[in-house]
């Protein structure tokens, strides 16, 4: 017969056996590396606690990079949310042929994952200096796209490219919310004499608001952490904060890792804030989808 402590030890082990590998993995390759950076952000070269590293984030070149990333993320998230919402609304509530919905959802699933380097190549091949659209505009209409001030390797060029995965992500996450928008509410509003404008302002948008804001937050975080597309498209001419950090890590810019720690921590704070908004609002908006 087993002694009591031995059995309880075996029981504890059996209780934990399934999650131990997971917890060990998460500890070693997720928590520890992140903690290492967060703690390092508060230490100086001699290991004393300091806020000096964060003060350096306000040096113009870093501040500008943060600001550029925030602008890019806000604008691409706003436009992406608007276009994605309009497309999803069109296939769900616009009385379009029913067969359009499934292809849009499937395509969005693919397009949301078609990010990174290949996406940059696709846009270079389309609206780059020798791209299909550029050439056709020149040959058919005599329009020189690049004389109009357009440039793919610019802020608005990046917005144009980012929209590809932003719009498709929006379609994927807003479809359940638009499905939850009951047809009866619209009919009820109309029966009570509401104009379509009043219906949108007083019924649909208030109901959708948490979902829309949450989706915006997720799209923001989605583009804020991105780097591969921008790197492949612009090299480092558009100094987003991710590209600055990348250069910092590779040692192209500066040898002090502590500034890198502070940049990394600043980025995580921003994406954590955006993701928290998304998660909280998603729970609120799910109330209407039952």
């Amino acid at each position: 017969m087993q002694s009591a402590p031995l059995r309880s030890f075996g029981q504890i082990l059996a209780n934990w056996a399934g999650v131990l590998p997971f917890l060990a993995f998460a500890g070693l390759f997720l928590i520890l590396p992140a903690l290492h950076i967060f703690i390092g952000a508060f230490l100086d070269a001699e290991g004393r606690v300091t806020l000096q590293n964060f003060a350096r984030l306000f040096e113009p070149y870093l501040f500008r990079a943060f600001w550029l990333s925030i602008q890019l993320s806000v604008i691409s998230a706003l436009l992406g949310a608007a276009v994605g919402f309009a497309m999803t609304w069109a296939v769900i509530h616009g009385n379009l042929p029913r067969g359009l919905r499934a292809p849009l959802m499937t395509f969005s699933g693919v397009a949301a994952n078609f990010a990174g380097v290949p996406l940059a190549f696709a846009f270079i091949a389309t609206v780059g200096r020798l791209g299909l659209v550029t050439v056709l505009l020149r040959d058919w209409f005599g329009v020189n796209l690049y004389a109009t001030g357009f440039n793919l390797i610019s802020f608005w060029g990046l917005v144009l490219v980012y929209l590809y995965f932003q719009v498709s992500l929006m379609v994927l996450i807003i479809a359940p919310a638009l499905d939850g928008l009951k047809k009866e509410w619209r009919e009820a509003a109309a029966t009570l004499g509401a104009t379509p404008g009043q219906y949108w302002r007083m019924v649909a948008l208030p109901v959708l608001f948490p979902a829309l804001l949450g989706a915006f937050a997720l799209l923001f975080a989605n583009s804020f952490g991105a780097i591969a597309t921008a790197q492949a498209l612009t090299g480092s001419s558009q100094t987003l904060i991710t590209i600055q950090l990348f250069a910092q890590i590779r040692g192209d810019v500066l040898q002090d890792p502590r500034v890198g720690y502070a940049i990394a921590m600043g980025m995580v704070l921003i994406t954590a804030f955006a993701n928290t908004i998304y998660i909280v609002l998603r729970q609120r908006s799910e109330r209407w989808m039952k």
């Binding site: 997720l30 520890l32 290492h36 950076i37 975080a221 952490g225 995580v268 994406t271």
Partner: peptide, 17 residues
């Protein structure tokens, strides 16, 4: 967490740690 912490930060942590 991997959705919240940008990949580049995770990679940075690996290199330092």
């Amino acid at each position: 967490l991997p959705l919240v912490i940008p990949v580049i930060v995770i990679g940075f942590g690996y290199i330092r740690l």
